[in-house]
């Protein structure tokens, strides 16, 4: 159940200042390479944020489609770092309990790395399919086959040598983050 009460308080003053600064010129949308796939353009999403329409924002496709290319932020005349804002909104969405496919993808990605010390595609796909449903593999068949033919997919799973030490280090970092509530080592 997605809970949006008190969500706006989750945004830091810097983010709030940026949201207020936007004067809706639309340059961000003009440069966005994936705008046509989005339900709300980057500009429209920021408008919904200004009006406090959190249900539109957190349930949108927009925040998950953002490719992080920075075309929007570079041109913004009001200095809004929209790319960073998008990543904050994803964090807020997850903190509110949102569980869509992209969320499951991210979570599986991270847990695979924590487990094995690196990302091996076959292992990752299997882990992902387990939480997302085996139908996600169907969409990967064609490109997966091509990759396999080119030797990009090792049949034997690759694991890190001292996986245990890495796992312990990463786990303790993540626990620290949980405890202090502060992200460690920059935004993901």
């Amino acid at each position: 159940m997605l809970s949006v009460t008190g969500t706006s308080r989750k945004l830091d003053p810097e983010a709030i200042a940026m949201i207020n600064a936007c004067y809706q010129c639309g340059r961000c949308s003009g440069g966005c390479p994936v705008v046509r796939e989005m339900d709300y353009s980057p500009r429209a999403l920021l408008r919904h944020l200004q009006l406090g329409r959190w249900d539109q924002v957190l349930f949108s496709k927009t925040i998950w489609l953002c490719a992080g290319c920075y075309a929007c932020a570079v041109g913004c005349p009001r200095g809004v770092d929209l790319t960073w804002l998008m990543s904050r909104l994803r964090q807020v969405a997850m903190a509110c309990g949102l569980e869509n496919l992209p969320v499951k993808f991210y979570q599986t990605f991270v847990s695979t790395i924590v487990q094995d010390g690196l990302l091996s595609e076959p292992i990752f796909l299997v882990n992902y399919a387990r939480v997302a449903g085996w139908q996600v593999l169907a969409g990967q068949l064609e490109s997966g086959w091509e990759m396999f033919l080119r030797g990009k997919i090792p049949l034997r799973p690759v694991r890190l040598n001292n996986g245990g030490a890495f796992r312990r280090a990463l786990t303790s970092l993540l626990q620290q983050e949980q405890a202090t509530g502060q992200p460690s080592g920059g935004d993901l």
Binding site: C25, G26, A44
Partner: peptide, 22 residues
């Protein structure tokens, strides 16, 4: 809506602008 950039066709020098009509 302001375009993010102007693109040119190298041969014809025709210009393309893309923007969101807000």
């Amino acid at each position: 809506g302001i375009p993010s950039r102007v693109i040119e066709d190298i041969n014809s020098h025709d210009l393309i602008l893309q923007a969101e009509d807000t």
